[in-house]
């Protein structure tokens, strides 16, 4: 058994304080304590990216982060992507370009793409493919995911001029 520790952090703009065993993984805290089940679990080896969240401005695989490591962190999950004005351009892009099928990889894809577009706001196809290489999809063959991210990049660039 591992000992408990109190962890405070912000998730999607909301402050939370949880008491967790020190060995608890962030993905379980999000899903089971905070009921944010949009973040998924697809493997046990950091390969699939279904659990991707944004932690202090970086994409991380929350199946490989201990909750205690998120002390005072800013976390963004798929549930926090849409703003008061509606869907995030990436969410729109995934729908418009048919970037999802079963939807299981989608939350991780979206959150990773969100960070990727901040790192590279106007990527070409190859850059998108490399930037998204940490996220597996078994359904779409990625072609429409690439298009969806381009859609969002164009919309965001247009919006910022």
């Amino acid at each position: 058994m591992s000992e408990q520790q109190t962890v405070g952090f912000t998730v999607n703009g909301e402050r939370h304080t949880v008491s967790v065993p020190t060995r608890e993984l962030l993905v379980h805290t999000l899903r089971e304590r905070l009921h944010l089940t949009g973040t998924h679990i697809g493997c046990d080896s950091s390969h699939c990216g279904a659990c991707t969240v944004d932690l202090n401005g970086r994409s991380v695989k929350s199946c490989t982060v201990l909750t205690v490591q998120a002390q005072n962190a800013e976390v963004l999950t798929v549930e926090g992507l849409a703003g008061p004005d509606g869907l995030h351009p990436l969410q729109e892009g995934f729908r418009e370009e048919h970037g999802l099928q079963c939807g299981f990889c989608t939350p991780g894809m979206l959150v990773r793409a969100y960070r990727f577009l901040q790192e590279n706001p106007d990527p070409d196809e190859d850059q998108i493919r490399t930037g998204m290489a940490g996220n597996l999809c078994r359904c779409t063959g990625y072609q429409n995911i690439v298009k969806a991210i381009r859609y969002a990049a164009e919309k965001q660039t247009a919006g910022s001029v």
Binding site: G38, V78, L87, R95, L100, P107
Partner: peptide
């Protein structure tokens, strides 16, 4: 466009582990 997407892109799917 797909009717399935609205929930999935907002993290509102309902899979067995949920």
């Amino acid at each position: 466009k797909r009717k399935e997407d609205a929930r999935f892109i907002q993290g509102k799917g309902n899979y067995v582990d949920d």
